[in-house]
Structure formats: C-alpha cells, structure tokens
Design a binder for these strands. Structure first.
Lengths: 191, 191
DNA sequence: ACCTGAACACCGTTCAAGT
DNA sequence: ACCTGAACACCGTTCAAGT
C-alpha cells in the first residue's frame, strides 16, 4: 500500500476540494496537507491545473469502475443504476463533480482518455437496455448522451441551487432521471 | 440612454467574461474597462462576488425576456423555442452561462429572485404545451425541470468538451434537446 | 531525482485621504 | 456620495541552492 508522493498530492487536493471547494485548493495548502513545501508539486505536475487534471482523471476512472460494477462480482449495472450512481456521486462530492466537468483549457490528454473510458462503459449499459427493450432503438451513443445530459444537468442545477430552494417537496435530481427513464420506456414501447 | 456607473461596471465585467473567461474578470481590469480605479467597484458592490451576482442576475432577466418573446410582438414562444434559446445563449456566451449557473455561496437575494422569474416564464411555456397536447400531463414545474436539466446538461457538457471532441458528426446540444422533445411527444400520445 | 526558501508579479480587500 | 493611492495578506510560479 505504499503510496507515491504524486498520489498523496492528488489525495490532498481532493480532500481540500471536499472540505472547502476549489478556492481551498491552493498549492500551499496541498503541500501542507501532504507534508511538503509549496513548490514540491512542481516536481510531479507541470502546473496547478495539471494537478487538478490528475484529480479529475482519477475521479473519472473511479466513476467508470463504479459504472462497471467493480467490487460486486457478476454485477452488470443497467443504464438506470449507472445514472443513479452518477447523480449520487455528484451530490455527495460537488467539488469534485464541478472540477471534473468544468472548463479545461489546453490539452489534457490524460483527462480526455479518462473521459473516453467512462463514456464507453456508459454506452455499453445503454446497449444492454436496448437489447432488453427498455431503451428506444437508435444510435446508442446518442441515447447515452441524452441520459448523461439530463443526469448532469439535474445534478448541476441541484448543486447550484437553481432547481429551487432545498425544501420539502423540491424536485430531486434522482426523480428527474427517473422521469426521463419512464418517458424513454414509453417511447420504446411505441416507436 | 444615460448609463449609471453601476451598469457600466456590470457591462465591463460581462465583456471581460466573454473575452477571457472568469479568470480575466479582475477588479483591476473591470475598473480599467470602466475608466475608474480598482477600488471604485466597492462603492457600488459590497464585494467582487456581489458584482458577479449582478452580472448573473442581468443575464437571467435578459433570458427571461427572450423566453417571453419580448421584441417580437404577439409572440408566444413554445417550450421548444424557449429551450433552443437557452442552448444558443449558453453556447454563444459560455462564460456568462457558467457564471450564472455556477456555485453561489452566501445569500444573493437579487439572484434568487431573478432565477425565480426566469423559471416562471419557462413553466408557463410548458403549461401551453400541455394544453395543446405536445407535452405529457403532470406537474408542469416537474416537466419544466426535466427539460431544463437536459438543456442545461447538454449545453454544459458541450462547453466543457465532455460530449466528445468538436468534430463533424458529434452530437450537438440542440439535437439532444430535440430528441427529448420527440420522446416527450411519444409519451404524451401514449399516456 | 527530489525538495526547499527566497523572490516576483498578481490578486482581493481595506483604509486614510481627497472632492 | 463617490473616488483615489498606498498598503496588506494571499496566491501561482520561478529560480538558485541544497541532499
């Protein structure tokens, strides 16, 4: 379980993100939390944004593993379970969620590859749904993009408070995703 | 057409946002663009984030006006036109879009009120759709939240590049919104 | 190969002072 | 009532120097 220094810096950044949001992730605080100076990260990452990209890439890979059902032997999560996992992750770790799907300028090849891997796992779940008739026919990547858009938007609007104040009776992100699945089932039955 | 200094500061911030993203919106740059010192904004806003909230509030009000069809006499945009306007705005002004729907900490009553107004206009369009049968029955606020989630998510994922690289054949945010409307129409026909 | 301390440019914010 | 210039604390980044 020997963790590399690079990993411990990514850990520190993710922890600060959870505690105080992106504003709390300063190189000084990251260095402190990892027990090194504020310049040490520059030996492992070209940049602060390169460190943040490493955090995001790791989140995407962990997300893809959850999508795949790793850890639960024989599990093949369907599209709905995958979407639910996505929304739960976003609401539980809003800082990581916003960072991961935030605006990335410049080339971040590692991040692009991780995005691609997570998307593939998701499209596979949609293909299984089409095979069993719970998803409409058509380009599975396109249906996956629709599902992801709704789940992402519902989670993002919830986190930002734009779905209304967090009171009793507010429409939750998980309910919206459920509604979409219900409409898709209806559309699959009547093509 | 006499513009208050407060308005010209909001203008300057919005312009910098369009040009260089949120990172370009510094109080020094805002002051420069408005022809005042970097401390002048503090006479009109308590804070930098208060200035940004004013930018976001103005965007929401302009968005609500576009949703209402202001400027085109007699126009009553339907839900689809409203969603299209939303997506077009987000793709054309990604900086304003991300700011407006970003994470707002602390109380921003002006922003909350503007959000409420924009949402009301949108829910009205959904009610009209239900009356003419193109939208499923049910709580109009909930259907509006589903539409907004999809449009918001599709726009956000497009802006962040998480819907895939911007190449020929990529699925566009507007296409995803169209797909949702098609599924909703099918669901409305077969309740 | 990895780390440190000092330094630099930049930022948000405050404050005494001006009109 | 509104604005300014100087100052302060904080940040990302660089660099010479250490092991």
């Amino acid at each position: 379980m020997a963790e590399s220094r690079r990993d411990s810096l990514v850990d520190a950044a993710a922890g600060l993100l959870d505690q105080g949001g992106l504003a709390a992730v300063t190189l000084r605080a990251v260095g402190d939390a990892a027990g090194v100076s504020r310049n040490a990260p520059y030996r492992h990452f070209t940049d602060k944004s390169d460190l943040l990209a490493a955090v995001a890439s790791r989140e995407l890979d962990q997300l893809a593993a959850a999508f795949r059902g790793d850890g639960r032997p024989g599990a093949k999560p369907d599209a709905r379970e995958v979407m639910d996992a996505y929304v739960q992750w976003a609401l539980r770790y809003p800082g990581r969620f916003r960072l991961t799907f935030g605006a990335w300028e410049g080339d971040q090849p590692e991040l692009g590859a991780a995005t691609y891997r997570a998307r593939e796992v998701f499209v596979d779940a949609v293909r299984r749904g089409q095979a069993e008739g719970s998803m409409p026919k058509g380009n599975p990547a396109r249906i996956a993009a629709l599902l992801l858009s709704t789940a992402h938007g519902a989670a993002d609007l919830t986190v930002s408070g734009h779905l209304g104040p967090p009171v009793e009776g507010r429409i939750g992100a998980d309910e919206l995703v459920d509604d979409l699945f219900a409409h898709l089932r209806a559309a699959a039955r009547h093509p």
